[in-house]
């Protein structure tokens, strides 16, 4: 498996910029989270990577090969898209066969087990299914398809809590049975925080973070105490958000804490989670105290 490289990728619809000069890499055999608010351009990015939409400029390569219209390279990637592309009367069985025809070596055995777990019958017609069932059926295909890069756009849309748990377990199973790269584009950040190793955050059409979860969380500090002490301590640090309750202030910092800084007696330092980090990083003008 080779790295997937996105270089200076831009997408415009007319004058409207959807993605502005994105560069990043996806490494082989790693689970990624692709995070961004509604309309940030996540789906467009996934469609660009799989050549379903053409870029305005920039390039996408696997190893040293440009993926543009190269069926061999495109065959290394599979996109489970948010849009349903199956025609009427397509059964789940047919969906699996299509994946087998396009990518070969589809894992029918594991797929059938997953269908049973999701309580789906392979003779059911896709368009007759509920939103959650459609997602489950698409996941059964996506996790058993033979590709090096599996991109999952909204993989838990409409799934109930039990089936989301099942998906997370199946994802890890699929990853361990055959290490591949998975990209999860989802809004349920809390649920995937432990699952993904690395996240890419898109905001205002650009990448604002591209880092391992562990290293991001290491810099996420919530500092609380008497307002004056907190302000003194956080002076000069990268502050994302603050909230005040009575005389107690909490300041959410995204920065390294200098060992030299003296922690005032009544100031408490905690960490906060990825979901909050995401909210504070992408809130923009909506921040109010």
């Amino acid at each position: 498996m080779e790295k997937l490289t996105v270089n200076k990728l831009t997408k415009k619809y007319g004058q409207k910029v959807i993605l502005d000069n994105l560069s990043f890499q996806l490494a082989p055999a790693k689970i990624y989270g692709l995070l961004g608010r509604n309309g940030a351009g996540k789906s467009t990015l996934l469609n660009l990577i799989t050549n379903r939409v053409l870029s305005t400029s920039g390039e996408i390569k696997i190893g040293s090969h440009n993926i543009n219209d190269d069926d061999h390279e495109l065959g290394k990637m599979y996109l489970m898209s948010e849009v349903d592309m199956y025609t009427k009367r397509t059964t789940i069985k047919r969906m699996m066969e299509l994946a087998d025809e396009a990518y070969e070596h589809f894992d029918f055995k594991n797929a059938e087990q997953m269908l049973t777990d999701f309580k789906l019958d392979q003779n059911e017609i896709f368009t007759n299914l509920s939103t959650g069932q459609r997602t489950a059926a698409k996941l059964v295909v996506a996790l058993n398809v033979n590709a090096d890069y599996i991109l999952l756009d909204e993989p838990v849309l409409g799934l109930d809590a039990n089936h989301r748990e099942l998906f997370y377990k199946e994802l890890i199973k699929a990853f361990q049975n055959k290490p591949r790269t998975f990209v999860l584009s989802t809004h349920l950040i809390e649920e995937i925080q432990q699952l993904v190793e690395h996240v890419i955050i898109i905001n205002d059409h650009q990448i604002i973070e591209d880092a391992d979860v562990e290293s991001l969380l290491k810099k996420a500090y919530a500092i609380s105490g008497p307002a004056k002490d907190v302000d003194t301590y956080t002076d000069g640090l990268n502050v994302l958000y603050t909230e005040t309750m009575g005389s107690i202030k909490t300041t959410y910092v995204f920065d390294g804490l200098d060992e030299q800084r003296v922690i005032p007696d009544r100031v408490k330092i905690d960490h906060y989670d990825l979901q909050h980090l995401f909210i504070y990083l992408t809130n923009g003008d909506e921040q109010h105290d």
Binding site: K30, I31, K169, I172, K173, Q194, V196, E197, E214
Partner: peptide
């Protein structure tokens, strides 16, 4: 698989 935590972690 049980804890839904990334294998690398």
């Amino acid at each position: 698989q049980q804890l839904h935590i990334n294998p690398a972690t």
